[in-house]
């Protein structure tokens, strides 16, 4: 950009400082409080890991964490497979209709609450018993759209003639996929999977509506929501810190693997 006066540059740095303070101070306060012996925001009473220790002894939180892990792992695995195949299918034919494009894009923009009630109506109309399996079915819907979009971005610069060359040289479709296509898109596939995993771990609304009655299929975000609404305990700060650390690690890895994925 053009030359700037020192005053303009100071203003720009000031804006950046303010915005980053706004974005990070609330998070930093939570993290700091999770190590506060007294647990209250009113006073710092010394460094302590006791809230982390008390999390480890909270069976409701542990079972919710296990449920979240199951949902996230299974839905990520299915979504990665289906989303990658979808991306290859769409990019290979090049000429695709607007309807197809909208179908793939829709899960990313449809309001969560709408998809949530739609799936609740659908599952109850089918008289399906709801539980972790219905959350997984639901999470695959948006996860596969995100995986597909990450993999498609990678395929935009893919030279399809090497696939033809591989076929001409006598390789089967499967061998071509395994030896030619997959190595090229692998970083995007892994990045997409990490993104899907994070989205699933953090997703609350759809899980809340498709989990069915009873506590057996409570996921971690559902547990956190209940804890915030009905009696805040300092344990939440410790739990929040762990959950944020997991998402941020997964996202940072994903970003390193596939530069620019966060920009999508």
């Amino acid at each position: 950009m053009a030359e700037r006066t020192p005053a303009t540059r100071r203003t720009l740095w000031f804006v950046l400082t303010l915005v980053f303070a706004f974005l990070y101070i609330p998070i930093a306060v939570l993290v700091a409080l999770s190590f506060n012996e007294g647990g209250l925001p009113t006073a710092w009473s010394g460094f302590s890991l006791k809230w982390y220790a008390s999390l480890a002894g909270n069976s409701a939180i542990l079972s919710a964490a296990l449920n979240t892990l199951i949902v996230a792992l299974v839905s990520t695995a299915i979504a990665t497979l289906l989303g990658t195949l979808l991306a290859i299918g769409v990019e290979m034919r090049r000429h695709y209709g607007k309807g197809l494009e909208a179908l793939i894009f829709a899960p990313m923009i449809i309001p969560d609450i709408v998809l949530a009630i739609a799936l609740l109506s659908f599952f109850s109309m089918l008289n399906l018993t709801m539980g972790l399996h219905t959350i997984i079915l639901a999470h695959v819907v948006f996860n596969l759209a995100f995986v597909c979009s990450v993999v498609r971005a990678r395929l935009k610069s893919f030279d399809w003639s090497i696939v033809e060359a591989s076929a001409d040289l006598g390789a089967s479709a499967l061998t071509t996929f395994r030896r030619v296509t997959l190595p090229v898109i692998a970083p995007a596939v892994i990045a997409g999977a990490l993104l899907a995993f994070t989205l699933s771990v953090d997703e609350f609304i759809i899980a809340f509506f498709t989990a069915g009655a009873g506590r057996a299929s409570t996921t971690l975000p559902m547990q956190i929501y209940a804890m915030i609404r009905f009696g805040i305990t300092p344990e939440i700060n410790a739990l929040a810190t762990i959950v944020m650390a997991v998402s941020i690690t997964a996202l940072t890895l994903s970003q390193r693997l596939n530069r620019g994925i966060i920009g999508q």
């Binding site: 998070i27 953090d202 956190i224 915030i228 941020i248 966060i262 920009g263």
Partner: peptide, 28 residues
């Protein structure tokens, strides 16, 4: 840019809860 977007990918409920900690009557 990365650090500006990073908070967006952490849990929505937790980011909202952080504001309860800041704003409540005995909050920060």
């Amino acid at each position: 840019l990365f650090f500006a977007v990073l908070p967006f990918w952490s849990n929505y409920l937790i980011r909202t809860y952080a504001w309860i900690v800041l704003l409540n009557r005995e909050g920060l």
